[in-house]
C-alpha cells in the first residue's frame, strides 16, 4: 500500500516536471507491488540496557567508541558521531530502556524532501544517504518527524549521518550489527509483516506485560522499526501524537496543484492580455 502511494507520488512529480519545464525525468519505477520491507522489532521488556548495540553500531560505522555509562546522561539523542543511543527512563512500571535511531519510515519525509534523491528508500526497507548526490541543504532534517538525520556542522565536507540499518551488511545477507549482536534478543530483524505478527503474538501471550500497542505500526504512516513496551510510549520519549498518515502526503496537495497552475495561469494571463492590449490610451506601444 505504501509503495503504491510512493509510485503515485513519483508519477505526480514527473508529470508536474514535464509540464513545468518541458523536461522528462525517467519514471523508472520498476518496483513491483509485492516488495516487502525489512525492519527490526525492539522489545523494551527484554532490553537490559547493556548498550552493546551502541558499541556494535559504532564499530560497524567507524564511529568513536561510546562513552562508559558513568560519563553519560540518562537521556541522550543520536548525533553525527553516534547513530543509536539506549536511553533509561524511570516509568510507572520501573526502569525501562529504549533504543533510538532512524525509524526507516515506509514513506519517509526525508526522501520526499530530498531534491537530489540522496535520501533513498531502498527496496529492502532501509533509508540510505548518498554523499555523491547530497548538497547539504538539510531539508531532510527539517521534514523528519523523528529528527533522525544528523548533520556534521563542524566539517567543511559535511555528511548526513543516521542509521542505515547496516545496508551494506544486508546486501551480503547478514542482519544489522545491533540485531545480530544483541545478547538479550531484544532486537529481532526480519520482514516487517512477520515482525508485526510476532509483536502481536507477544502482546497476546503476555497482555499484562505489554501495552497493547506496537509503536511504528501506524505512526507517520508506518515505520521499519517497531517498538514493544510495558508503558505508554510517551513515557519513553517517543512522540505518540504523530499523525498516522505519511508525512509526504502533507505536500501532495501543493505538488498536485503545480501542473494545473502551469496550465491554467498562463492561459488566464494570455486571456487578460488579449482583452486589455487595445486599451492603450495614446497608442504608444514601445518602452519608454
Amino acid at each position: 500500500m505504501g509503495l503504491n502511494r510512493r509510485n503515485f507520488f513519483k508519477l505526480l512529480g514527473v508529470s508536474g516536471m514535464t509540464l513545468a519545464v518541458g523536461k522528462t525525468a525517467n519514471a523508472a519505477s520498476t518496483e513491483n507491488a509485492t516488495v516487502e520491507f525489512y525492519g527490526i522489532l525492539y522489545d523494551s521488556t527484554r532490553c537490559k540496557g547493556c548498550r552493546g548495540c551502541e558499541y556494535d553500531c559504532a564499530d560497524a560505522h567507524g564511529f568513536p567508541e561510546p562513552l562508559p555509562a558513568k560519563d553519560i546522561p540518562a537521556i541522550r539523542t543520536t548525533n553525527e558521531t553516534c547513530n543509536t543511543v539506549v536511553n533509561r527512563y524511570k516509568t510507572s512500571k520501573g526502569e525501562v530502556f529504549i533504543k533510538r535511531q532512524c525509524m526507516h519510515c515506509n514513506e519517509p519525509a526525508c526522501v520526499a524532501a530530498c531534491l537530489t534523491q540522496a535520501m533513498h528508500k531502498t527496496k529492502m526497507g532501509p533509508v540510505t544517504w548518498d554523499g555523491d548526490k547530497c548538497m547539504g541543504c538539510r531539508y531532510c532534517m527539517v521534514s523528519c518527524p523523528f529528527d533522525s538525520p544528523k548533520f556534521e556542522f563542524h566539517s567543511p565536507n559535511p555528511k548526513i549521518q543516521k542509521c542505515d540499518m547496516c545496508f551494506e551488511r544486508l546486501k551480503t545477507g547478514e542482519s544489522p550489527a545491533c540485531a545480530f549482536n544483541c545478547p538479550n534478543e531484544a532486537l529481532l530483524y526480519g520482514k516487517r509483516r512477520d515482525l508485526l505478527k510476532e509483536a502481536r503474538r507477544r502482546i497476546y501471550e503476555k497482555p499484562d506485560v505489554y501495552l497493547d500497542q506496537v509503536y511504528g505500526e501506524h505512526a507517520a504512516g508506518g515505520t521499519g522499526w517497531l517498538y514493544l513496551s510495558p508503558v505508554p510510549f510517551n513515557e519513553l520519549g517517543l512522540n505518540n501524537s504523530l499523525q498516522q498518515s505519511s508525512y509526504p502526503a502533507l505536500t501532495t496537495g501543493f505538488l498536485y496543484s503545480v501542473p494545473s497552475i502551469f496550465v491554467l495561469v498562463p492561459a488566464f494571463l494570455m486571456g487578460i492580455y488579449q482583452a486589455t492590449k487595445n486599451n492603450t490610451p495614446n497608442g504608444k506601444e514601445e518602452d519608454e
Binding site: L12, G16, A20, N26, C114, Q117, A118
Partner: peptide, 11 residues
C-alpha cells in the same frame, strides 16, 4: 539523473 521530483525544494 538526481531529480527529486517529489520534493517541494526541487520545485
Amino acid at each position: 539523473n538526481s531529480f527529486g521530483t517529489s520534493s517541494v525544494l526541487f520545485l
